[in-house]
Simulated scan of single mutants.
Amino acid sequence: MTLFNYSPITERPPIAWPDGKRVAFYVGLNLEHFLPGEPSTSIWPLDVTPDPLNHGWRDYGARVGIWRTIDILDRYGIRASALVNSMVVEHNPQIIRAGVERDWAWLAHGQTNSILHTGYLPDDERPILTEITTAIESATGRRPRGWMGPALTETVNTPALLREHGYQYVLDWTNDDQPYHLNVPGMISVPYTVELNDLGLFLRGLSGPDFLQMVKDQFDVLRDESAASGRVMALALHPFVIGQAFRAKYLDLALEYIAARPDVWLTTSDEIATHYLTS
């Protein structure tokens, strides 16, 4: 059985978002823990231990960048969809508390972004998912309903095992501008993005003004296309990237533009999933 069927966006029943809004916009805020000495996202790949250059670059997000990012989200009343490694619960509890105070949506993002979620047999994967889910629920008071694997990884069994744990959606399959049903009863895919993603954009050398223009263009086109059926716009952020001072000002300008549009639904991935599943 394939995980999902082919469905052209031109051949689906129309989606209507609440209050006649045309574009459902959410921020996927990656809250990640990295293991010192283990390979992971790097600004300058080196095979050394310890690795102050790369680990320090990543760690800036938890120490500084996240707080700058939170201030900007607060300014526009945007609740994050927090994609959280379960190890963040132990290592960065202040970030979890800040998100709970702001009623963020909480999605499981594996244990750590130093370990990809792949290669597990079901009997090995099931307890790992239980551990991840329990840690996030205990810290936030809310059982996660959505999943995005570290570096968008999952096994062929992950969606079905997630459903056993009460999950309703995954973000790993970035192949659509609308939610769609998976061939796992009760599970859907909600759009995420590897294109409008600060990590990929800025590490390829794009500037802050480039980022701002891309956000505007993405919204404008999706808004135009949504005349007959609603669209989803995801913005993927990593605090160690967008939280750098010289980039954060352009996030501020981008969210100012989005929040001022009268036909945008500022929402979370949880709310998008709920609306799609119950409409």
Rank of each mutant, 00 (worst) to 15 (best):
S42I: 09
W44S: 09
L46G: 03
L46A: 09
P50V: 01
D51V: 10
P52G: 03
P52N: 01
L53T: 06
N54T: 01
G56E: 11
G56P: 13
W57P: 00
R58C: 12
R58F: 04
D59P: 02
R63M: 13
R63E: 15
R63S: 14
G65M: 05
G65Y: 08
G65C: 11
I66G: 04
W67R: 04
W67V: 07
T69E: 12
D71V: 02
D74N: 15
R75L: 11
G77M: 14
R79E: 08
R79V: 05
A80E: 10
S81A: 05
S86R: 05
S86E: 04
S86L: 07
V89G: 03
E90M: 14
E90T: 15
E90G: 09
H91Q: 12
N92P: 02
P93Q: 14
P93S: 14
Q94D: 15
I95V: 15
R97L: 11
R97D: 14
G99I: 01
E101Y: 02
W104S: 00
W106E: 08
A108H: 04
A108G: 09
G110K: 00
G110Q: 02
Q111L: 03
Q111W: 01
T112N: 10
T112F: 01
S114D: 09
I115Q: 03
L116K: 12
H117I: 00
H117L: 04
T118F: 00
T118S: 02
G119E: 11
G119C: 14
Y120R: 15
L121D: 13
L121M: 13
D123T: 05
D124A: 15
P127C: 10
I128D: 03
I128C: 03
T130C: 04
T134R: 15
G141R: 14
G141L: 14
R142P: 08
P144H: 06
P144S: 12
P144V: 12
R145H: 08
R145C: 03
G146K: 04
W147L: 05
W147K: 05
W147H: 06
P150D: 06
P150R: 01
A151Y: 04
A151T: 06
L152A: 03
L152S: 04
E154C: 08
T155P: 00
V156C: 07
N157C: 11
T158I: 00
A160M: 08
L161K: 06
L162P: 13
R163Y: 10
E164R: 08
E164W: 08
G166Q: 06
G166M: 07
Y167W: 02
L171I: 06
D172S: 03
